[in-house]
């Protein structure tokens, strides 16, 4: 082995002395699934700490949307803003939270492109914990967004007829729905070339679906009559309503997606994720990294 050390003469005092710390001693046992999931959840929390702007989506946007649609269109659509708020809030709750789900895919896409995901994949860990940990923190984000919107809604005069239990149930449905929905973006995040194309695709799907669904306007001609009869069950029903009851196509997509996600275990999903990854054309960083 021919090592040359000429440059050693030029090294200065702040130079590295790695020898001391290179040997780590005994290798610890690999972490269990819970420990690695928690480590990834902590990573997601730290990211919120360092990039607090990302919380705008769950705090400021819902407020803007709710105020805008209630007071800008409320009168025109439902006759009075108060009545429209009653109808709109559950729908806009679903809309906001489904939009936040995109970021799951975007984060994963970034991790893959930047190569950090490669590092995770060479660690002796239960790999899905990288996604599950991030999802756990997302659940917090979804809940926060829901809480803010319902709180604001209550201030503005929203009176859920389902009561506290109904509201709680509705939020649970939303959490389950967004959890299932986010797997679409997770899968897309693996195959899409860039963050931008993923954004594009997700908006192309989410926006039309939101507007043709009954988030803003009940497409049923017997709008008023139905409103009165649905009554008590409104909030719980409404949150699923907008995607499931009226819009058949969306219904099929989302229900089958829900079935896929809830039916298969995380391990299966990891296998799908892994196989998609294996079949993507190139190592991600090889074709997209620009810097």
């Amino acid at each position: 082995m021919s090592i040359r050390l000429e440059h050693d003469n030029s090294t200065q005092e702040e130079d590295v002395h790695p020898l001391n710390a290179i040997a780590s001693g005994r290798r610890p046992d690999p972490p269990n699934a819970f420990a690695s999931t928690m480590a990834f959840a902590q990573r997601a929390l730290l990211r919120i700490k360092h990039v607090p702007e990302q919380m705008f989506d769950v705090t400021v946007f819902p407020i803007i949307f709710l105020l805008m649609f209630t007071y800008l269109f409320g009168g025109a659509i439902a006759g009075s803003t108060g009545e429209y708020l009653q109808f709109l809030l559950p729908g806009i709750l679903v809309m906001t939270v489904s939009q936040i789900t995109i970021y799951m895919g975007i984060d994963l896409n970034n991790d893959i492109r930047k190569g950090i995901f490669d590092r995770f994949r060479t660690l002796p860990i239960w790999l899905p914990s990288a996604l599950v940990g991030a999802l756990l923190v997302d659940v917090i984000r979804y809940s926060l967004a829901s809480a803010i919107m319902i709180g604001l809604g209550l201030l503005l005069g929203f009176r859920p007829e389902g009561g506290a239990i109904g509201v709680f149930g509705a939020v649970l449905v939303i959490l389950l729905f967004s959890f299932s929905f986010s797997w679409i973006w997770t899968a897309a995040g693996i195959v899409m070339r860039s963050e931008k194309s993923l954004m594009m695709m997700s908006f192309m799907i989410i926006f039309p679906l939101t507007f043709v669904s009954n988030v803003f306007v009940d497409r049923c001609p017997r709008f008023d009559a139905r409103q009165r009869h649905v009554g008590a069950d409104r909030l719980g029903g409404c949150s699923v309503r907008c995607f499931c009851s009226d819009f058949r196509a969306a219904d099929d997509v989302f229900v089958s997606e829900q079935r896929v996600t809830s039916g298969s275990s995380s391990i299966k999903r990891a296998v799908i994720v892994e196989s998609i990854y294996q079949h993507t054309k190139k190592a991600p960083e090889e074709n997209t990294f620009t810097k």
Binding site: P31, A39, I116
Partner: peptide, 22 residues
Amino acid sequence: YASIDEDLTGIENLVLISKLMG
């Protein structure tokens, strides 16, 4: 390319990997 989380600090990155190592 640096396969670490650029949004995290140096120590946070190393702690994360250390935890993932067990």
